[in-house]
Design a protein around this nucleic acid. Structure first.
Length: 318
DNA sequence: ACCTGTCAAGTCTGG
DNA sequence: CCAGACTTGACAGGT
């Protein structure tokens, strides 16, 4: 079985390579002509796409096949003040070229809409904004020419002191989404409200692939172990063209157990590998440490030192 | 070159 | 009912 590793959105190694350049609304509005505003936004987006291209080359150089796009490729894309801007028209060719590169390199692309993208909010405007944000993310993947194997990872949302109702709201709103978005959505357990077993049940009932976040599971669980739920979690990916994915990170310190540390605790991760290895099924690992690619490289070094069998610089066989 | 407050966006707690 | 915590990366304005 093969395990491939990746990291999130940006590099701490490459210099001046942020894919998330933006502008504050205040400053944008200092430009009086809307054409000038759009020009500024497009320039920022092109810089972000260019830097994401550099990240793709960086990935190829290190055999990294798993990568998450930043949600900030197009500045202010879903801001209500900027509804008039057709960024797809303006940037379509740039995104297509970026997607061609991803496909050529066999990159497994995903995106993770931010924590305010809540499909199950009690407030209508919040759900509306969440749908708008999902559409935005989907349009980027679509503009890149990526098929439904490029996923959008989201959480169930808040519990609102009425979890059964909140859960139902998620399902209702999820079912109302357009098919092209539904086909991309995968659900992740979180560290405060929806545990792995709860998310798993939702995923099984509604045929949604599930991403297991090991760190979140450690923060919030019902006493269920990784070993007992992992086969069912992986089974939610049956019928998908790509293998299941897990997220890893380590607690920052004893006081902030939910916050992400700079690096991955490789001992802890090897414990997980032991459990996962018994299933004999390929999977991808997304490293969510704050040090990004540097943390991934450090983890891979630790694995190499322990004698794991590397098939290239960023994947191992068990 | 470096520092600090602020930024579009939400939820939850505690006062 | 409201302020603050939680938490990410980058801007913007100042020294």
């Amino acid at each position: 079985m093969r395990i491939r590793f990746g990291y999130v959105a940006m590099s701490t190694i490459l210099k001046d390579c942020s894919p998330s350049h933006t502008i504050t609304l205040n400053n944008l509005m200092k430009l009086s002509l809307s054409a000038d505003r759009y020009k500024r936004l497009a320039a920022l987006a092109r810089m972000n796409i260019a830097n994401t291209t550099r990240l793709f080359h960086h990935n190829r150089a290190h055999d990294i096949k798993v990568f998450r796009l930043t949600s900030k490729l197009v500045p202010l894309a879903t801001h209500p003040e900027l509804d008039g801007w057709d960024w797809r028209q303006e940037l379509g060719a740039d995104f297509k070229a970026l997607g061609d590169l991803a496909i050529r390199d066999g990159l497994r692309i995903s995106a993770h809409p931010d924590h305010f993208t809540l499909l199950n909010s009690q407030r209508y405007e919040v759900v509306e904004a969440a749908v708008k944000d999902l559409i935005f993310h989907e349009q980027i993947l679509d503009a890149m020419g990526l098929d439904a194997s490029a996923k959008l990872v989201i959480h169930v949302g808040g519990s609102y002191k009425e979890k059964p109702l909140a859960r139902e709201r998620f399902i209702e709103n999820f079912c109302l989404l357009p098919d092209n978005i539904k086909a991309r959505i995968v659900l992740e357990n979180d560290d405060k409200s929806y545990s792995a077993s709860e998310v798993l049940e939702l995923c099984q009932q509604h045929k949604i692939p599930m991403v297991l976040d090991i760190h979140h599971h450690w923060c919030l669980n019902q006493g269920e172990s990784i070993e007992e739920i992992l086969p069912a979690v992986f089974a939610t990916w049956d019928g998908e063209s790509l293998p299941p994915k897990v997220h890893i990170s380590s607690p920052r310190d004893g006081k902030n157990i939910r916050a992400h540390a700079d690096h991955i605790d490789s001992r802890f991760f090897m414990g997980f590998l032991d459990a996962a290895g018994k299933l004999g099924r390929d999977f991808d690992v997304m490293c969510e440490a704050k040090a990004k690619d540097a943390a991934l490289f450090q983890l891979l070094q630790h694995l190499a030192a322990q004698g794991y069998h590397f098939v290239d610089r960023a994947s191992i066989d068990l």
